[in-house]
C-alpha cells in the first residue's frame, strides 16, 4: 500500500467513518428524533462520498466564465470538476428533506397515539395491547 494510494483513498475512508457514526446512532439510540438525526448524518456522508468522486485535483467549480459581450467564453486551459455528481446530490438533498419531514410527521403521529417517542416504551405499549387482544379472543372462544 503506497503513500499515494493512502492519500488518494483517505477521503473515502473518512466519509465511511462518518457514515458509521450515523448508523450507530440509528441502531443504538432509542429516541426516534435522534434516529432521524442519525439518518441525516448517514445521508450527508453519502453525499460527501459522491461529491468527492466528482472532484478533480486542480479543477474549479463547474461555472463557465462570460466574456464582456455576454457570450460564454471557453476556458480551454481550465479544468472543471465533474458537474454530474453535483446535480445528482442536489436532487438527493431536496428528496432527503422531503423524506425527513415525512419521518418527523410520523414521529408526531406516534407521540399522539402512544404518548412517547422512545422505542422501548412504544414496544411495551404494543405488548400490552397484544396481550389484551389475546385475552379478549380467549374469553370470546370460551
Amino acid at each position: 500500500m503506497s503513500w499515494e494510494f493512502i492519500l488518494g483513498h483517505m477521503n473515502y475512508w473518512l466519509f465511511i467513518i462518518l457514515m458509521l457514526i450515523g448508523l450507530y446512532i440509528v441502531i443504538a439510540k432509542g429516541n426516534l428524533l435522534k434516529k432521524i438525526v442519525g439518518l441525516n448524518i448517514f445521508q450527508v456522508s453519502v453525499f460527501m462520498m459522491y461529491i468527492s468522486i466528482g472532484k478533480v485535483i486542480g479543477g474549479t467549480a463547474p461555472i463557465l466564465p462570460y466574456d464582456n459581450t455576454g457570450h460564454v467564453e471557453y476556458g480551454l486551459d481550465v479544468i472543471y470538476s465533474n458537474p454530474l455528481p453535483h446535480v445528482l446530490i442536489l436532487t438527493a438533498i431536496v428528496v432527503g428533506v422531503a423524506t425527513t419531514s415525512l419521518g418527523l410527521a410520523l414521529i408526531v403521529r406516534i407521540r399522539e397515539e402512544y404518548g412517547t417517542i422512545e422505542e422501548d416504551e412504544i414496544l411495551d405499549a404494543e405488548t400490552l395491547i397484544a396481550e389484551k387482544e389475546n385475552e379478549d379472543r380467549e374469553a370470546w372462544l370460551a
Binding site: N40, V44, F47, M48, I51, S52, G54, K55, V56, G59, T60, A61, P62, I63, S81, P85, H86, I89, L90, I93, V94, G96, V97
Partner: peptide, 18 residues
C-alpha cells in the same frame, strides 16, 4: 466541505435546505 470540493451549488443547497 462541499465548497472545498468545488460543489458550490450543493453547498448552498445544503446550507439553505439541510
Amino acid at each position: 466541505l462541499f465548497i472545498v470540493m468545488d460543489a458550490v451549488d450543493v453547498a448552498f443547497t445544503e446550507a439553505a435546505v439541510g
